[in-house]
Write a protein that binds this DNA or RNA. Sequence first.
DNA 1: TATGAATGAGCGTTCATTCAT
DNA 2: TATGAATGAACGCTCATTCAT
Lengths: 191, 191, 191, 191
Amino acid sequence: MEKPIQKRTLATRAKLIAAGEAIVSEGGFDALRVEEVVSRAGVAKGTFFAHFRDKDALMERLIGVRLDSILDALSDIPAPKTTDAMVEEMLPMLQFMVSERYVFDLILRYSGAALIDDIGPIGICIGRHETVVMGWLNAEGVRRDVDPKILAEGIQAFVFQTLALHFCALHSDISIQSRLGSYLKPWLLAH
Amino acid sequence: MEKPIQKRTLATRAKLIAAGEAIVSEGGFDALRVEEVVSRAGVAKGTFFAHFRDKDALMERLIGVRLDSILDALSDIPAPKTTDAMVEEMLPMLQFMVSERYVFDLILRYSGAALIDDIGPIGICIGRHETVVMGWLNAEGVRRDVDPKILAEGIQAFVFQTLALHFCALHSDISIQSRLGSYLKPWLLAH
Amino acid sequence: MEKPIQKRTLATRAKLIAAGEAIVSEGGFDALRVEEVVSRAGVAKGTFFAHFRDKDALMERLIGVRLDSILDALSDIPAPKTTDAMVEEMLPMLQFMVSERYVFDLILRYSGAALIDDIGPIGICIGRHETVVMGWLNAEGVRRDVDPKILAEGIQAFVFQTLALHFCALHSDISIQSRLGSYLKPWLLAH
Amino acid sequence: MEKPIQKRTLATRAKLIAAGEAIVSEGGFDALRVEEVVSRAGVAKGTFFAHFRDKDALMERLIGVRLDSILDALSDIPAPKTTDAMVEEMLPMLQFMVSERYVFDLILRYSGAALIDDIGPIGICIGRHETVVMGWLNAEGVRRDVDPKILAEGIQAFVFQTLALHFCALHSDISIQSRLGSYLKPWLLAH
DNA sequence: TATGAATGAGCGTTCATTCAT
DNA sequence: TATGAATGAACGCTCATTCAT
């Protein structure tokens, strides 16, 4: 009785997201213009803002969709045996995050929201990622003296650090993989 | 003939920085508008850009000044003996970084620049911070199996992670100190 | 079979008007939004337009109600003997008209409608006012060389002029009363 | 020293006004779009708002220009001998005011401003009109018992009343001339 | 160096009104 | 009658940055 969301509403929202995805896949996230989204979706501008608080809200959704499909793949694989393998598996996600500065910034900003109420699509994905990664930590060689939750959060921290340095140090010769690896080994391995 | 920097030039730059600091101390970094800076400094808009590459260049200067004074204090203290003490000592810096979302974002963006050529004031400060912290790692109980440089970078990563979560998880009941502590213990301590 | 107006219909309309009045008494006419009217009345937006041609139709109703009660009082008093007394008696109406620029504009726009077919609540009130005022003109000292109908219309013109100047000339030191009086004396008195 | 307005500024403003006039003369005031003004003037949108507070501010200017040229003509003619002749002379102005509802509303709203400080173009024109008309009142047959200033203001009141009724009473068979005449005779003539 | 008018792309907003269900 | 999602056309604004003087 509360809010029997209408079919039409859902259809409109879907049209908006589909239009957004089309634009992004053609020109990247940075190229997305609200004006074009509504024109492609065939709805009025006012409608857009009735569905999304602002442009960023759609961006979050769109990024969330991408992250979700990456995470779907990640969930299906068996737990990697080494930190190098771990990094290898995370690579698709890292590459997506690093594909556009704009994307990275948005993820960074909305990622932590995983802990609060009005958790957005990105926050949910980060949460999923944490869960998946946590599932990997029950492996041989991984330290047992630290709460896996903390370990997973730490991995997250190193991921962000790695990507942030990647953006700043454009001419750096250290690859994402090796940098992340050099953090994860001492963080995860029993010694 | 090289760079006979004129007195007037220096004076103008000083006026701009003073104006910037005044605005920031009144309304925060986020509220700083080039328009107001020049109006307070009594110069024209164009003059601003003759002195600073862009607005961010001034921002960096302003933030750099603050960070520097915090770091000056940090350099004078003896190396903390425990991770808790370490967190305690870093608190002033954390609190400044967390004082405004805008400040945090800017630091995040320019921090990694420490690795590249055109290193700015913020990058320098992050570098100083890293050096100071690295100096603490020669203590008893700190693991020796990892390059201190990597350890220091890891601390940085945990600092950023902690602050990022702090921003998003407004209602969280975990304090900055305890969260950072729960990262640093397993990261730094031999076991 | 003609118009068996249902109880529900009347109830809905009453709710809408009540909601409108509540909003107006809280924030003024200018602040009335259809959105809020229906939300307070607990009906859907579409329902509003099933009851009122447009927003202005409600506005007219609302203003009409106020004007009516002012006019009821005005009808009961004996004809004033002087133009000053006349102005005095008209004051409550003037003050209401001047209470909000928006109200004045609306009255101005719909007042003349008195001459056409689809006469609305405001037009009716202006007509009533004209009738009342015309009844005052049969007094001693009032010129007889002009059709009382024209005289009454002229009074109306001076009222509007006075109020219009009142809005623009905020800092003017001439009161509504004295300005209107200085128009009415030469207009009404035999000489 | 205060504000040595630059030539370029003046040129830009002139371009803006010229563009506005062109649009108005093609499609009427109601058809003016800020977007088109700037596009025709070949300047940026931001520039428009640097010169005019908002769209209405340009409208005022544009209407002011038209009124000015009508008033220029009005100033050159000899004082009319009768109220009918007076009405006849005022006709061009009346017709302009009545040419578009939008124009009339704007004039009505800004006319009285003639009395205050931040007097706009329209206010100035109304003032000029009053002066011109006042000059006509020194004629034979015009009553002497009332301050010409009041008489002129009264004429203004009747003009607005006439035009307002003209708009509302679309199907009315009374012409502007005859209605205005029926007000002016008893207002102006000695009896 | 200094000036300050001009740039400019696009976002967010407004909110009365319509219409398919 | 009632519903409420959708409409839609502009407006106003932002404000760091550029460039001709």
